[in-house]
Structures are given as structure tokens and as C-alpha cells.
Nucleic acid binder design. Structure first.
Lengths: 141, 141
DNA sequence: CAATTACTTTAGAATTATTCTAATGTAACT
DNA sequence: AGTTACATTAGAATAATTCTAAAGTAATTG
């Protein structure tokens, strides 16, 4: 017999949320489960919402947007900018860079941590570097 | 006395358009003038439209969007992805990278051509690298 | 160089992604 | 258990961008 949702929820998700200072609500727990269950993922709000609905999780698109942004704020997710039309979120928050498949609008982590940026100039006066993003855009040949 | 608009139009704009295979229409000529008159610029469709209207150029926002995309297609402009909410276009199409001021959503070229990406991995099977974008995100400190 | 044709521009409607709002629900604290 | 502060929600609102179909203009033709 299937346990109730709450009991099903991965305890690590709850812990994760607590540590991040976010109240572990049903939807946050279940979304966190989805997000962090199978390794690194790149997804949009629409994608995650569809997936959640498919698995029978009752959650509105608005909440998915809220949750993604909250998770991003507390460092559980990272937002990746590659496409003018949609926002991607990445479950891998460790410093790493991306391949972007222009044809199908798909993202992939660049394997290994070999890639590096050389000679990054000093940040202009009064500013500091908050992040260096590298996107290697790929096209079919 | 002021010459008529057509005669005012920078001849190089017309040439530029012809070479790119774009019919040099009034709006394209005038927008090209604005875009390429003073060096490197980073602008959005809204920005350019406002500027054009300010200078008395009659052009619709739709045409500005069309024109920016056409110019981008033929390599006269380059689209820069840094902000989920707006699309920036860059009049500098030579390989170079950007500073992005997170607070005010402003873009600037990284001076010099020192910056480089090391150890870019091979493009996955069946693909080739079309471009490598680097964005150094800055925050006030 | 006037007529024809093909490509452009335009206003406004439509679409898409995202955010807002105000009512309802729920976790956490007393 | 009751209260309070924070979350969720549906749907409306907004913002950026694209579409559409009619009107305009550059280029080509005879």
C-alpha cells in the first residue's frame, strides 16, 4: 500500500529546505524531490510544472515560478541565461559551464572542470565579480 | 538649411545594407545610421525605438524588432543573452566578451582582447562550436 | 520611366512568458 | 487548540515579442 504523500517525501528535501531557511511546505518538498532526485537537471518552469502534474503533484504554475526563484535565491538552484525566450534553472550549483544546442534549445553541463577563463580583467571600480558564465553554443554540422 | 532625410543618410549605411543583401529602405538606413554612428553600443528594441522616435525617425516598434533580427541574421549585429527579461543587441560583432552590471542591467564590453577561454572541450559528436560566450557578472560592493 | 512585382512597413491584435493580487490554506509558535 | 505569519492558488495583469493583413516603397521589367 502506498504511503501518504508527506511520509513519502524524501527527508533530505525537508532538511535541505530547513537549512536554506525555507519553510518545508508540501509543494516545496515535492518539487525539491523532483528537482534533486536524479542528478543534474536543466529545466524551465513549464517543464517542471508539467512533470509535477504528471506525477500527480498538485501545484500551480505560479507556485512553480515562486519556488524556482526562492530556491535560486537561497542557492539551491542556479539560473542559466541562454535563450531570450525561456529561463532555465540548473540543479547543479557548483561552478561549471554549459553547452547549448542552438537547434533544439537544450542545455548540457560541460563535462569535467577543465574549462576555465583566462585573464579575467579586474572588476571595474566599486564592483566585484559575482560570477563568470561561459556558454559554448553548438550547432549541428 | 537641412537636407532631406534620404540625402542625410550616411552612404556607408546603404552600402553596408547592400553588401549584407538587405534592401536599403528608409527605416533600415536610418536605424543603421543610429546603430553604427558612435562606436559600440548595447541596446534593446525599446531603447532603439525610443531613440529613433526622439530623433524624429518615423518607425514602428515592430519594424525595430524586425530590423534588429535581420541585422543579426546577416551579421551586422550580435545578440547578447544576459537578462531573462530583455534582449540586448551589440553593434560590435568582433569576438569579444561582456561585463554585466547586475544592479542596473547594463552591459559593457570587456576591454582588451586578453580574456580567453581555456580548455574548451571538443564539441560533441555531430556538432560544431558556433560561438563561445563569456559574461562576467558584476555586483556593487 | 511607368507599370509590375517582390519585399517592407505598419498598427494593432495575438501570443508567450512571467508576475501580481486578493482570497484561501497550512506550518509553526504560543 | 488557537493564533499568526508565511504559502499557495486561480485568474487577472503585465511585458516583451511576434503575427497579420493591409498599405507602402524599392527594384525590376517592358
Amino acid at each position: 500500500m502506498r504511503k501518504k504523500t508527506r511520509e513519502n517525501t524524501n527527508e533530505s528535501a525537508v532538511t535541505r529546505l530547513r537549512q536554506a531557511g525555507l519553510r518545508p511546505t508540501r509543494q516545496r518538498n515535492e518539487l525539491a524531490d523532483l528537482l534533486f532526485r536524479d542528478g543534474n537537471r536543466h529545466l524551465t518552469a513549464e517543464t517542471l510544472h508539467a512533470e509535477a502534474v504528471n506525477r500527480g503533484i498538485r501545484v500551480s504554475l505560479a507556485t512553480v515560478y515562486n519556488t524556482l526563484h526562492q530556491f535560486t535565491h537561497v542557492g539551491l538552484l542556479r539560473q542559466v541565461m541562454v535563450d531570450a525566450t525561456r529561463s532555465y534553472f540548473d540543479t547543479n550549483t557548483v561552478e561549471h559551464q554549459h553547452f547549448y544546442y542552438e537547434e533544439d534549445g537544450t542545455l548540457a553541463d560541460i563535462p569535467g572542470s577543465d574549462i576555465g577563463v583566462a585573464n579575467v580583467p579586474d572588476a571595474p571600480n566599486g564592483t566585484k565579480v559575482s560570477r563568470v558564465d561561459v556558454v559554448v553554443r553548438l550547432r549541428r554540422n
